[in-house]
Amino acid sequence: MENSTFPPYFNLTMFVNIGNYRYPAFVLCLLLYAFIVLANLVVIVLISREKTLHEPMYIFIMCLSINSLYGSAGFFFRFLRDLLSDTHLIPRTACFTQIYVIYTYASYELTLLGIMAYDRYVAICQPLNYHNKITSKMVSKLIAFAWIYPGFSVAACVHLASSLPLCGNKIPKVFCANWPVVKLSCVSTVINNLVGMFVSTSTVFLPLAFVMYTYIRILLLCRKRSAGFKSKVIQNCLPHIVTFVNYAITVFCDVALSRINLEALNPFLAIILSLEFVVIPPIVNPLVYGLKLPKIRKCVLNMLSCSERTSEEK
């Protein structure tokens, strides 16, 4: 096998035609990343420090924020550098590392949302059994499963893709992605497609289907209850529903984009649609949970009032 079939670099072609817009784009993206880090760190610190928030639902929210920091770091560090660079070659090892980080981030988000849906389902539909089923030990097991299974399944996909002999090195995106690399293969990719389909089904479609099933059960229960009960359910479930719908849309857009010729689109539109997948959820999640859940909102307001008093005393 010739060495040219395993190119040492990949070329991220979607950066072409940005021109002088790279500088305002860099500033905007740097501010976005700073906001993502700050907002998610606030959620993590609050839940870690406040004993009143040491409940399963808030522990899962903290895991979502940790995952947002993980995924955004895997994207923004390289993306910000490429915005200011004249060449957009990424080493082979760095490319497959970025694929692993971004795809595990996506899988973790979905498995965590599935676990959160189960938590809400038990709390609403089986309240008397909640503390028996959702114990601290069960929470640890659920979080471990949410991290471990996607980590190994995505690793299998990345390993198979990295073993393929390639007939090119151009990736029509602003970050490395698995499917564009597989499409460069010089040989059959049947095994890659089968493994990718299995991993997508188990880490994407099954969690999505499970979330939909739990909320159908919750809605059926709400039909028979009072207006006050419905209002409380909506208050507890709305942040999760918003997060779920937002992430489902971004995943759908990313899957759709991977199946079309991005270079045929307007370059700015293609870049914006590509960024949606790795930028919007880390921004929306802390805002939704911080503004909609009373306990977190109260803690944020208390923290702000304490900081104001400290500054006045100085």
Rank of each mutant, 00 (worst) to 15 (best):
N132G: 07
P239T: 02
C125M: 08
K141W: 14
T52Q: 08
F26N: 05
T250V: 15
V233S: 03
I44N: 02
C29Y: 03
Y23P: 01
M1K: 11
L30R: 02
G151E: 01
T52N: 11
S163H: 08
F175E: 04
P294E: 06
H54T: 02
C299A: 12
S153V: 06
A270F: 09
C176R: 02
N20L: 10
A270C: 08
V27K: 01
A34H: 03
S307G: 05
V195W: 01
N40R: 00
S202M: 15
L32I: 13
L301G: 06
I99L: 10
L38S: 11
F76D: 02
I36F: 02
R81H: 13
T189P: 03
P282T: 01
T214F: 10
P207C: 08
A94F: 07
F152V: 07
I296P: 00
F244Q: 01
E276F: 13
F277W: 11
A270P: 02
T87E: 12
M57D: 10
S274H: 06
I191W: 04
G74S: 12
P267K: 02
Y58G: 02
Y70P: 03
I241P: 04
P180N: 06
S48G: 05
V174D: 04
V181R: 00
C237M: 04
L53D: 02
F244G: 05
V245M: 10
V300I: 15
M62R: 04
F268E: 06
L238S: 09
S162D: 10
I216D: 10
A94M: 10
G290D: 03
L194W: 10
R309N: 14
F268D: 07
Y103F: 12
G74N: 04
K298T: 13
N67Q: 08
L84T: 02
N285G: 01
F76M: 15
S153P: 06
F252N: 09
I124N: 04
L219G: 15
L83C: 05
N129K: 15
N178S: 12
S202C: 12
L304A: 14
E263H: 08
R223I: 13
R120L: 11
A25E: 13
C253I: 12
K314N: 13
K170C: 12
E308A: 12
